[in-house]
């Protein structure tokens, strides 16, 4: 496990977007003050840590991917993402449990607006840690003259969330204080796991977007075309 000393910047606009506000919306003063206050003071509730391993991809065939001889993932989407890649970075990030404990307390106290804003900040912070890890993987790839793919997480598209266990084992999730429920969800909830492909700079890896060929047009996770 690595605990990043980096301060995870919380993008205020991203927080507002995640609770529905676009840039052209009227933002009530009370909400603007609340979001500003939380974004400014939330850092003591965020303990960013991550684990990431870069391993060789041994086989990509149909919907099966074998990494490092023993990590097997089954997913057409992940197979298409990694088809042109030589290596895969498997990662796990979390912001710890303090923020969600505070959000629970706010709900119990009936402060549901505050809890919703804090929860949104937690999601943005967790994505921020994942962005940080993705940046580190990009640096590793760059040093080798390679590029990285988009990142995907178990539970997305056809990648069965149960395969979270294989990913968890690969990165030593238990040592990060994260545990999996029977349904393979992570506790603390503000945690993200996933995979990033590393491959040649020929355009196929960077530009691979499985969403382009997916017919779930209303999917909330659909990536930009």
């Amino acid at each position: 496990m690595l605990v990043t000393k980096e301060r995870i910047d919380i993008d205020r606009q991203q927080v507002l977007r995640s609770i529905g506000y676009g840039t052209d919306c009227k933002l009530p003063t009370r909400l603007a003050s609340l979001v500003d206050d939380y974004v400014e003071n939330v850092h003591n509730l965020i303990e960013p840590s991550y684990s990431c391993v870069v391993r060789d991809i041994n086989l990509v065939q149909d919907s099966r991917v074998i990494i490092d001889g023993s990590i097997i993932f089954e997913s057409k989407v992940i197979a298409s993402l990694l088809e042109q890649c030589e290596k895969a970075a498997v990662f796990l990030v979390t912001i710890g449990e303090h923020l969600e404990e505070m959000a629970y307390r706010l709900v119990e106290d009936g402060l549901i607006v505050q809890a919703t804003v804090l929860d949104a900040i937690g999601s943005v912070a967790a994505e921020g840690v994942a962005d940080f890890v993705q940046g580190r993987v990009r640096e590793i790839a760059d040093d080798r003259g390679l590029v990285i793919s988009q990142r995907f997480s178990p539970g997305c598209c056809d990648w069965d969330i149960c395969q979270q266990r294989r990913l968890f084992w690969a990165v030593g999730g238990d040592s990060m204080g994260i545990h999996l429920t029977d349904g393979c969800l992570m506790i603390p909830r503000k945690s993200i796991s996933g995979i990033i492909g590393i491959g040649p700079r020929d355009g196929n890896v960077e530009n691979c977007n499985p969403c382009k060929t997916c017919d779930k047009h209303n999917c909330h996770g659909r990536r930009g075309m």
Binding site: I19, P28, R30, G110, T116
Partner: peptide, 17 residues
């Protein structure tokens, strides 16, 4: 009509509660 968003609606729901 997208004049109100989630927190606005929650504030109103809280008032009702």
């Amino acid at each position: 009509a997208k004049k109100y968003y989630l927190p606005d609606m929650l504030a109103s729901a809280k008032a009702v509660g």
